[in-house]
Simulated scan of single mutants.
Amino acid sequence: MTLHFLPGYAPDLNPDELVWSHVKRTGVARRPLQSGEKMGLRIHEQLAEIGRNPRLVRSFFGHPSVSYITDL
């Protein structure tokens, strides 16, 4: 196991930010909410869909900005 010390604020080094960027680019922000629709539920559904796609999840960790995660 390797411990990586990161700056206090480094969104470009955080794979979570890549997930949120994907959500904004492909889902929630692309279509307005329908009458009575809840944003939280839509986001939860989209995150669950991402979680069922192993190839997509791996792609977040393969991004050059977070390659430190998989360095051996």
Rank of each mutant, 00 (worst) to 15 (best):
14 N>P: 12
33 L>R: 04
34 Q>N: 05
67 S>G: 08
26 T>E: 15
11 P>N: 11
41 L>K: 01
24 K>F: 06
70 T>L: 07
65 S>T: 08
17 E>F: 01
66 V>W: 03
28 V>I: 06
12 D>L: 13
19 V>I: 07
61 F>Y: 15
35 S>Y: 08
60 F>K: 05
59 S>R: 14
16 D>K: 10
3 L>D: 15
8 G>H: 02
52 R>T: 11
33 L>W: 12
9 Y>E: 03
9 Y>W: 10
60 F>L: 08
70 T>I: 07
71 D>H: 08
55 R>L: 14
47 L>W: 07
34 Q>M: 04
16 D>T: 09
65 S>D: 11
2 T>R: 15
13 L>W: 08
11 P>A: 10
67 S>L: 02
4 H>P: 00
2 T>D: 11
66 V>H: 06
27 G>F: 04
46 Q>Y: 12
50 I>D: 01
53 N>Q: 12
1 M>Y: 08
29 A>D: 13
63 H>N: 12
22 H>I: 15
1 M>A: 05
14 N>W: 04
20 W>M: 10
13 L>F: 04
28 V>T: 05
10 A>R: 06
62 G>A: 13
34 Q>T: 05
67 S>H: 08
14 N>Q: 13
44 H>C: 10
65 S>E: 14
60 F>T: 06
56 L>I: 03
41 L>H: 05
29 A>S: 02
42 R>N: 02
38 K>T: 00
7 P>Q: 05
69 I>W: 09
52 R>E: 12
48 A>G: 01
62 G>V: 12
14 N>V: 04
39 M>L: 07
71 D>P: 09
32 P>C: 10
43 I>D: 03
11 P>M: 11
58 R>A: 03
14 N>L: 09
10 A>P: 12
2 T>K: 14
50 I>M: 07
71 D>K: 05
49 E>H: 06
15 P>V: 02
12 D>W: 15
40 G>Y: 01
20 W>T: 07
25 R>W: 11
46 Q>S: 02
43 I>A: 01
40 G>R: 01
44 H>L: 06
17 E>G: 03
42 R>F: 00
33 L>N: 10
34 Q>K: 06
36 G>F: 14
12 D>Q: 13
22 H>E: 14
